[in-house]
Design a protein around this nucleic acid. Structure first.
Length: 484
DNA sequence: ACGTCCGTTGTGACC
DNA sequence: CGGTCACAACGGACG
C-alpha cells in the first residue's frame, strides 16, 4: 500500500519532534512537504519585516534539512481551501498529515481542509506536537473547563505523567522507498519567497541577532542546557516556562473570545481609555520614561525583549500608567515579537493588566524603580537610548529631574531632545488602582460603586452573586459543548 | 457556606 | 546590603 502524502508544515517548522511528518513518510511513494503562504495572516494582523525575515529563514532551514534527506519544501501561495483541491488532484494525493493547531482561525481552517480531504478520499492524520499534552485532554480532565491557576494545571497534569518524548528526525534511510518529485517548472512557483515578494522593505530590517529555523533553535537549546548547571524548579525553571505555555494554550482553547475583553468570561471588564497619542508614544518609545522607552526600542528594532521587560511595558500601558486596553498592546507585540504566539500573547496581556489569572492589581511596576533593581547604572537604557548616555546613574531613570545645567552638559534637553514623562507615575498609579478596584467591584455585582467612587468605598457590594457565577460557568460549558 | 491559604518575579520604609 | 513588613485587599482552590 503506497501513499502519495502531503505533509503540511504550519507552526512546527522542523524535522525532529514531528510525528505527523513521520506518519506522512510511512508506506509512502511520493512525499510532498508543503508550507502555505496564507493571505489570511497579513490581512488580519500587522507583521514586522523582522518577523517576516524570521519566517523566511525558518523556511530556508527547513528546505535545507529536507534536502539533506533527499526531499525538499514546496512553498505554496494561496488560501488553503483553494490550493488543496488542486494539489490533491495534481499529485494524486491519498494522505494529508499535519500538526494539531489549537488557535481559533487554525481550527476553522483545518476543519474546512479536513472536509475537503474527505471529499477527495484523502486520509487525514493529525498529531499533537506543538504542545506537551493534548489540550482537549487537559480540559476534559478538568471537567470541561480550562484550569485557571497554575497549581490547578499541575494537579490536572500529575496523573497524565510525563509528556511524550520528542520523535527522532527522519533520515535518508526513511526516504529510501520514497521520493519527492520536483519539476523545473516548480522553481518560481513553489520556491522560498523573498522579502520583496512579501511586500517587505529589507532596508527596514533590524540587526540580525536571532536567525530563524530549527538548526539555530536546537543549537541555542544545546548551549542553554550545557550552560545551566543549577536547575531551578517550576514555575520559574525552563520546565516551568513550558508548563506556563501549556497553561495559556489550554486557556486559549477553553475560554471563548480569549484574545478580547468583551465576551471573555474570565476577563475583568475595564473602562480603558482611548488615547491614541499615548498609545503611539508607548509603541514608539516616546513616553519620557527611559526604562520603558529603551524596552520598546529594543522590541521595535530587534524583535525580542526579556520576559520581565514585557511585564514592565505591559503594566505601564494598561493598569499601571496609561490606562489603555491590553488588546492594543497585544497588537503591537503581535507585530513586533519574533516569538509572538496567539495564546501566550493574549494570556500574558490579561495577566499583566490584572484582567485575568492575576488579580493583585495594587502591585504596580514602577517605570523607575523596577529596572534599577537589576541595573543600577542604567546600562540597558544607555544601550538603546544612546542620547541619554551622558546622564549619571542618579538621573538616568528620571532625566527630567536633572538640573538644566546637567542636561546641557549631557547634550540632551528634556522636553526638547527627549520627551518629558507623558504621565506622572505616582499620580496615575493611585488613580488607576482605584479604577481597577471599581472595575472589580462592578464585576462582583456591586450596584453603586462606579467610576466616580474613587475614594475607596468600604462597601463590598454583593460578593460573587449567583448570576455572575452562572454566566461564567455557562459560557465555559457552551465553549465545551460546541466542540462535541 | 464560609474561612483560610496561596498566588512565577511590587514598592518603599525600616532595621 | 539583605531581610522584613505594611501597604490595601483581589480571585481561585480547597476543606
Amino acid at each position: 500500500m503506497n501513499h502519495n502524502s502531503i505533509h503540511w508544515f504550519r507552526k512546527g517548522l522542523r524535522l525532529h519532534d514531528n510525528p505527523a511528518l513521520l506518519a506522512a513518510m510511512k508506506d509512502c511513494a511520493e512525499l510532498y512537504p508543503i508550507f502555505i503562504l496564507d493571505p489570511w495572516f497579513p490581512k488580519n494582523m500587522q507583521v514586522s519585516v523582522n518577523r517576516w525575515r524570521f519566517l523566511v529563514e525558518a523556511l530556508k532551514d527547513l528546505d535545507e534539512n529536507l534536502k539533506k534527506i533527499n526531499s525538499r519544501l514546496f512553498v505554496v501561495r494561496g488560501k488553503p481551501a483553494e490550493v488543496f483541491p488542486v494539489l490533491f488532484k495534481k499529485w494524486k494525493v491519498t494522505r494529508l498529515t499535519f500538526e494539531v493547531d489549537t488557535e481559533p482561525y487554525s481550527k476553522q481552517r483545518d476543519a474546512e481542509v479536513e472536509k475537503m480531504a474527505a471529499e477527495h478520499s484523502v486520509q487525514v492524520i493529525q498529531k499533537v506536537s506543538n504542545t506537551l499534552y493534548d489540550i482537549d485532554r487537559i480540559i476534559a480532565e478538568n471537567n470541561g473547563k480550562a484550569p485557571l491557576t497554575y497549581v490547578r494545571l499541575q494537579t490536572v497534569l500529575a496523573p497524565l505523567g510525563s509528556p511524550k518524548r520528542p520523535a527522532q528526525a527522519p533520515t535518508k534511510n526513511d526516504m529510501k522507498e520514497c521520493s519527492t518529485p520536483w519539476k523545473s517548472s516548480y522553481d518560481g512557483k513553489y520556491s522560498i519567497p523573498t522579502l520583496e515578494e512579501l511586500g517587505q522593505d529589507p532596508e527596514k530590517l533590524g540587526p540580525h541577532l536571532y536567525p530563524g529555523g530549527e538548526t539555530e533553535a536546537l543549537s541555542r537549546l544545546e548551549i542553554y542546557m550545557k550552560r545551566t548547571r543549577k536547575h531551578s524548579h517550576p514555575p520559574v525553571s525552563l520546565h516551568g516556562q513550558l508548563l506556563w505555555r501549556e497553561f495559556f494554550y489550554t486557556a486559549g482553547v477553553g475560554v471563548p473570545n480569549f484574545n478580547k475583553m468583551e465576551g471573555n468570561p474570565v476577563c475583568v471588564q475595564v473602562d480603558w481609555d482611548n488615547n491614541k497619542e499615548h498609545l503611539k508614544a508607548w509603541s514608539e518609545g516616546r513616553t519620557g520614561y527611559p526604562f520603558i522607552d529603551a524596552i520598546m526600542t529594543q522590541l521595535r528594532t530587534e524583535g525580542w525583549i526579556h520576559h520581565l521587560a514585557r511585564h514592565a511595558v505591559a503594566c505601564f500601558l494598561t493598569r499601571g500608567d496609561l490606562w489603555i486596553s491590553w488588546e492594543e498592546g497585544q497588537k503591537v507585540f503581535e507585530e513586533l515579537l519574533l516569538d509572538a504566539d496567539w495564546s501566550l500573547n493574549a494570556g500574558n496581556w490579561q495577566w499583566l493588566s490584572a484582567s485575568a489569572f492575576f488579580h493583585q492589581f495594587f502591585r504596580v511596576y514602577s517605570p523607575v524603580a523596577f529596572g534599577k533593581k537589576t541595573d543600577k547604572n542604567g546600562e540597558y537604557i544607555k544601550k538603546y537610548l544612546p542620547f541619554l548616555k551622558k546622564f549619571p546613574a542618579e538621573y538616568i531613570y528620571e532625566p527630567w529631574k536633572a538640573p538644566r545645567s546637567l542636561q546641557e552638559r549631557a547634550g540632551c534637553i528634556i522636553g526638547k531632545d527627549y520627551p518629558k514623562p507623558i504621565v506622572e507615575h505616582e499620580v496615575v498609579r493611585k488613580k488607576n488602582i482605584q479604577r481597577m478596584k471599581a472595575a472589580y467591584a462592578r464585576r462582583s455585582g456591586s450596584v453603586d460603586v462606579g467610576d466616580k467612587d474613587l475614594e475607596g468605598s468600604k462597601k463590598k457590594g454583593v460578593k460573587r452573586n449567583a448570576a455572575k457565577e452562572q454566566s461564567v460557568a455557562d459560557l465555559l460549558k457552551k465553549a465545551k459543548f460546541k466542540k462535541d
